[in-house]
Design a protein around this nucleic acid. Structure first.
Length: 234
DNA sequence: GACCAGGCACATC
DNA sequence: GATGTGCATGGT
């Protein structure tokens, strides 16, 4: 019986062989990653890309300018072609709540670190994570996405795909919460941000392509690694 | 038209 | 403490 470490590594290798490097996070700068992490909450990434493109087009992908824009939001409702943040991030859905969350994060980022990624990066993970979780609108997944993908900190990001795939493989219990799920990876894998980065990206790739909630999963590269008891209704 | 997508906060029981 | 609900667009 392979150890949990071996099992996790086997799954990683299988996914890496099947899909190759994912080159995550798909963003041009750490700040863009941070913004994307908030905008992608419960939202398809393709829609987030449109919102980010809008922000870029308005030259707002900058902490101070974006914060100002959030403060000056909202534009009048209705037909107005407002360039307010609300209109710009509209394609990402939940635009009212996300504008508030962006604003909360940006206030924190500017107050604590002057909007300086390099400065934020210098703070230890153990300090940063609780700080981020203290921002209204930043939960565990968003915090960890920022820590790993924008700041290169060694923390494993879990999401709905991670839960779905690893419970169905019998590796996580159905009742596992975020922290328990995360511990499976962090306690059994080398503490390497590069590995955590690629592993999570591969999980999302598998989830998007093959591990939908309802349709039967066809051609999943992990098929041979599923437990016998699993009926494979991924 | 229904379902889903890289969550989170808040109200209610 | 657990569960339910609102937030909202766009692709399949």
């Amino acid at each position: 019986m392979p150890s949990l470490t071996n099992k996790l590594q086997q799954i990683y290798e299988t996914l890496y062989r099947a899909f190759g490097p994912q080159h995550w996070w798909p963003g041009d700068s750490p700040f863009e990653v941070m913004v994307g992490a908030i905008l992608t909450q419960n939202t398809n990434w393709a829609n987030v890309e449109k919102a980010i493109a809008n922000l870029k087009g308005a030259d707002l992908l900058d902490p101070a300018r974006l914060y100002q824009a959030c403060e000056n939001s909202p534009p009048p409702k209705g037909e107005g072609q407002g360039e307010g943040v609300l209109s710009l991030i509209r394609p990402a859905g939940y635009f009212n709540i996300k504008a508030k969350r962006l604003r909360n994060f940006l206030k924190f980022f500017i107050d604590e670190f002057g909007g300086d990624v390099t400065l934020m990066k210098k703070a230890p993970l153990e300090t940063l994570r609780p700080m981020l979780l203290g921002v209204n609108g930043i939960g565990p997944e968003t915090a960890d996405s920022i820590l790993l993908y924008a700041l290169d900190k060694p923390i494993f990001v879990c999401d709905a795909y991670t839960y779905r795939i690893f419970t169905r493989h019998g590796i996580a219990g159905e009742d596992a919460d975020y922290h328990q799920l995360q511990s499976i990876f962090m306690d059994n894998l080398p503490n390497d941000p590069k590995l955590f980065n690629e592993y999570h990206a591969l999980i999302v790739r598998l989830g998007k392509d093959l591990c939908r909630p309802k349709p039967r999963c066809e051609g999943c590269p992990l098929e041979s690694q599923l437990p016998q008891s699993n009926n494979y209704q991924l």
